[in-house]
Amino acid sequence: MSAAPAAIRTEGLTKRFGRTTALDGLDLEIAPGEVFGYLGPNGAGKSTTIALLLGLIRPTAGTASIFGADPWREATTAHRHVAYVPSEANLWPGLTAAETLRFLANVHGTVDEAYRDELLERFDLDPDKKVRALSHGNRQKVLLVAAFASRADLLLLDEPTTGLDPLKEQVFQACVAEAHEQGQTVLLSSHVLSQVEATCDRVAMLRAGRIIEIGHLDVLRGLVAVQVRAVLDGAVPDLAGVPGVGNVVVQGSTVDCEVSGSMQPLLAVLADAGVHHLTTREPSLEELFVRHYEEP
């Protein structure tokens, strides 16, 4: 038995809404201190998972725990560990940003005030503005500041940067990194794949309520072919029979292809032809994503 409970553990977690199965037997274990990327197209079950982890909705089957506490039955115990940022900041329009932050800090019970003030600066948020006068992105910042300033053990972030400009996106990624250094756990559900690539150790990919891929980013990348472009000194040799090579496109003395597995057989053939220039590109998470979800 492990001594410290997992930050998040789910076993067979299932949620059905009427006939629709939003989440189908999710098994997930996220260790304390991990920054975990949670990916999937719209309607894959990402927000349902987070609603279950917050105890907002009740599982149809299976169990979930947050640092050992059942989020449905022991919601207030589980909530001690959690800060939550949804994709849409629905806040009280008549309260100012500062008042909202104070309320959320009181609700959560902990706040690092110095860090909060620093975050207000970094996110460039006017605390005296009322929520109704804030833009969508600025409302989102209120919740991000509240979540990071709470120094909660677990940050549940559900597409948290919708509406944020690229500069603030960088601030966000820096904050996730700081949370990671502090030993906080982060579950980041996102469509911004560069964001996940920049911040996450492990990712899970969800489709139709099931995990179809889970693991370290590097491992997942290995599942997909590397893009190779070579400019040769002479004519392009026939690459049809070379093991692991596919999708060959030849244009003059330039060849584009994909290589899965070992690079050696391709390099051997190309070296004989004389390589003028060679570039390889790791597949981006986006390509990985498209691969997984494009197929029917």
């Binding site: 919601a75 207030t76 800060a83 939550y84 849409e88 959320l104 609700v107 959560h108």
Partner: peptide, 15 residues
């Protein structure tokens, strides 16, 4: 309905 309740219940106040 507005989604604000989620934040009010995000802490140690039970529903």
């Amino acid at each position: 309905e507005s989604g604000r309740l989620v934040h009010a219940l995000g802490g140690t106040t039970g529903r």
